[in-house]
């Protein structure tokens, strides 16, 4: 920081006595203030990315997980929480192979998502097509919105 440079040069500050201390204190405070802003671990969105479609009676969650075999997929619903687990096999690295690019993910993933309402877990349906997973989550019967009839007086 600029302040450190000034402080190191020393001489001009010495006659002001505690100015240097004040500057040090300010510097510490500024550092403390900004330290919370830069997180040491890069913040990444969760994987896999999920889109959620809603209406009054059902929610549809979609996620793009290309190359995952449906046998390696595990979907569970407890109350309001939807969890998706799965894996994609690691690429075989045979003799004489070398990677020029390796951008695709491999291994296991798991993701939990909170839904806006409780789900009737017996009626959840999932469809996997062209690497896109569609999960239909019907709202629990007890929680469906009820229409209130207004009686005329």
């Amino acid at each position: 920081m600029l302040w450190s440079e000034l402080r190191r040069s020393g001489a001009p500050w010495q006659k002001f006595g505690n100015v240097e201390q004040n500057i040090k204190r300010m510097q510490d405070e500024m550092n403390r203030l900004f330290s919370g802003m830069t997180s040491p671990v890069p913040v990444q969105p969760e994987f896999p990315a999920v889109n959620l479609w809603l209406n009054d009676t059902t929610a549809i969650a979609t996620t793009e997980i290309a190359g995952v075999s449906p046998d390696n997929l595990e979907i569970s619903v407890i109350g309001k929480t939807l969890s998706i687990k799965g894996s994609r096999p690691k690429a075989e690295t045979g003799e004489g192979q070398s990677y020029h690019r390796k951008e695709r993910w491999e291994g296991e993933f798991s993701r939990a998502l909170e839904l806006p309402y409780n789900v009737d877990s017996d009626k959840v349906e999932a469809k996997f097509e062209d690497g896109v997973l569609y999960i239909t989550l019907p709202r629990a019967e007890a929680e469906k919105p009820k229409k209130i009839v207004i009686k005329s007086a």
Partner: peptide, 22 residues
């Protein structure tokens, strides 16, 4: 699309993730 490109003795393998395309 994210790709892997693998050079093998007799060919080059390109693998691309394109969910939603058939």
């Amino acid at each position: 699309p994210l790709v892997d490109i693998v050079e093998r003795p007799n060919d080059i393998l390109v693998v691309a993730d394109m969910p939603g395309a058939d």
